[in-house]
Amino acid sequence: MKYLIAANWKMNKTVADTLEYLELFLPSVKDLFEIEIMIAPPFTALSSASIKLDTAKKEGEYNVKLGAQNMYYEEKGAFTGEISPLMLNELQVDYVILGHSERRHIFGEKDELINKKMFSAIEHGLRPILCVGETLEERELGKTLNVVEAQIRKALAGIEKDMQFLDIAYEPVWAIGTGKNATPGQAEEVHKFIRSLINEMSKGNDDKTRILYGGSVNENNAGDLIKQPNVNGFLVGSASLDPERFYKIITKVLEV
């Protein structure tokens, strides 16, 4: 199981910014196949990024996948402002991030909606990255594992047999964009719990589902975090906006 290092740019970078970034970043990861790399730009830049990555792969050996930051579960219809899985398929998108805490807490997405999106993504050949994590209040009350378990069970209800087609990202809400991050020990505790939960829900697939850590990952803490037995990669936010910083995180993973 290869490590997955994924970049979530959130609402950052224009089309021009995206192309400039890839121009700088791609040469540094040419012929790099030991790990998997994914970049999720905003929807407006997906098409240009797709073309750029496709061109790069024709000119050399690249293993950079394209991801989307969200999607709706229907293929088409009167859903103003939404993006369907068919639209992502057309752009050769490989991954889709679902259930991110910003979608949950800012836009009010519930586990039932996330479950429908998970079903749809897998059905349409997209590999979802399911985000789970607790708030600071929930951690202080000792509810971390209960919250994470509830989110996973609800989001994956009915698709337990498809665990090998998805990844899970543990992102403590209190560590996203705050500059704070879970200690390697805190991260490993939750990741180990998630691994055992996956094994219970889908026997034999616990080693096919990667568990990523997200929450203020940067080039300084990546080395210690990735050494944990059940940390299989990262979902990187702000540090991925700079191609040099993102590449430094990748190098830390390659050193393990």
Score class of each variant (00 low, 15 high):
K52R: 14
E149N: 06
F79Q: 05
G237S: 09
E112T: 14
I176R: 02
Q151F: 02
K248P: 09
G125Y: 10
I114F: 12
N8E: 08
S50E: 06
F43Y: 15
S48Q: 15
A169Y: 00
S47K: 14
P41D: 06
A150Q: 13
N205F: 11
E160V: 02
N181S: 15
T44A: 13
P243N: 10
S196P: 05
T251W: 09
K13R: 15
Y3P: 10
L197R: 08
Q151K: 04
S28Y: 12
G158L: 02
Q228G: 10
L241E: 07
L212K: 04
I198W: 04
G237D: 08
E244R: 15
Y170D: 01
L53V: 10
E140L: 13
E219M: 12
A187R: 00
I114E: 03
E200G: 09
E160I: 03
V29R: 04
I39Y: 10
A175H: 00
M71Q: 03
K57G: 12
D94K: 07
F193D: 05
R245N: 15
V231H: 01
I129W: 00
E134W: 02
N146F: 14
P184I: 00
Q186M: 12
K248Y: 11
E171M: 01
R195Y: 08
E123H: 10
E20I: 13
L254S: 10
G177Y: 01
M118E: 06
G125W: 05
P42C: 10
V190D: 01
P41I: 12
S196W: 12
K203W: 05
G233A: 05
F119W: 15
S28G: 07
T80G: 11
I97M: 08
R195Q: 06
E200M: 11
G133N: 03
D167W: 01
I51G: 13
N232V: 08
Y170H: 01
T80A: 11
N12C: 15
S84R: 04
E75C: 13
T14R: 14
A7E: 09
E134T: 07
Y21A: 07
V173H: 02
I39Q: 08
Y21C: 08
